[in-house]
Design a protein around this nucleic acid. Structure first.
Lengths: 119, 119
DNA sequence: GTGTGGATTGAAGAATTCTTCAATTGTACA
DNA sequence: TGTACAATTGAAGAATTCTTCAATCCACAC
C-alpha cells in the first residue's frame, strides 16, 4: 500500500501546500497557539467559506488539526517547527526581494531608454 | 512603481515557486555548487525543454542565476541559505509523513470493516 | 558560409488550483 | 420543534500552471 512517493515529490507537494496567501497567514497566526476559526476569520480578510476551503487544504496535508468545541472549531499546528521554516523562508525572501530591487532599477533604466527612443 | 506586495503574498509566491518536483531537485543539486545544464539534465529525468521551462521559473524568481560559458549554461544558487530552508522543510515533512502512516493504518482498518460489512 | 549540439522560447491544450455561491451539518437556545 | 449562528462541503466557471512540440538562438567547428 501507500505507493512510495519519491521524496522530492513529497517536498514539492508540501511547498505547494504552503503556496497560498491565506494559508500562510493561518499558519503564522497559529504559531501563537491554537485559535478558533472565528478569530482567524476576524484577522484575515477573506470570506468564511473561502477560509474553510483553505483550512481544508491544510488539514488534508496534516499540518494543522481541528477540534470542535461546542459551537466553534479550534485549529492548531499539528506539530513540527513551522516557525523555523518560516524564518528560513523569510531570510531567503529578504535576499530575493533585495535582488529584485536592483532588477527593478535596471528595468526602469531600460524603460527610460525605450521611451527616449520611441519619441 | 513596484506596487507594494503584502509580505504574506510574497511568501506564498515564494513557496509556490518551490512547489514542483523538478525545481526542487535542481535546487538540491545546486547546493553542491554551480552546475551546467548538461549535468542537471543527466541527473534529473526530464526532457531538455521541460527542464529549461523550470529553470526559467527559478531564474525569474531570482533564486538561481545563469551564466553562459561558451557552449554551455551554468546555473548557481543566487545566494541565501537554501540548504537551511530545505532542512527545515524536511523536518516538518518527516513529521507529516509519520502522521500519515498513522492515518493510513486507520484508513486500512476502516476499509477492512467496510469490506466485512459488504460481504 | 553550412551544419551541429546545447539551451531557450512561444504557444496550444491538458490538468490543477482558486473563487464563489448555494446547500448542508452541527450546536445552542428559546 | 424551530430559529440562529458557526463552519464545512459540493460544484461550476475562472484563472494558473504544466506539458509538449516546433521554432529559434548561440557558440563552435568545418
Amino acid at each position: 500500500m501507500a505507493v512510495a512517493v519519491p521524496l522530492y515529490q513529497a517536498k514539492a507537494e508540501f511547498f505547494r501546500m504552503l503556496g497560498h496567501p491565506v494559508r500562510i497567514r493561518v499558519l503564522e497566526l497559529l504559531q501563537d497557539g491554537p485559535m478558533p476559526v472565528r478569530d482567524l476569520l476576524s484577522q484575515i480578510e477573506v470570506e468564511r467559506s473561502s477560509l474553510s476551503q483553505q483550512l481544508a487544504v491544510l488539514r488534508r496535508s496534516g499540518i494543522v488539526t481541528a477540534v470542535r468545541d461546542g459551537d466553534t472549531v479550534i485549529y492548531a499546528l499539528a506539530g513540527g517547527d513551522v516557525a523555523e521554516l518560516m524564518r528560513a523562508a523569510r531570510r531567503i525572501l529578504t535576499d530575493l526581494l533585495a535582488g529584485q530591487q536592483d532588477l527593478l532599477a535596471t528595468l526602469r533604466e531600460a524603460e527610460k531608454n525605450e521611451l527616449a527612443k520611441s519619441t
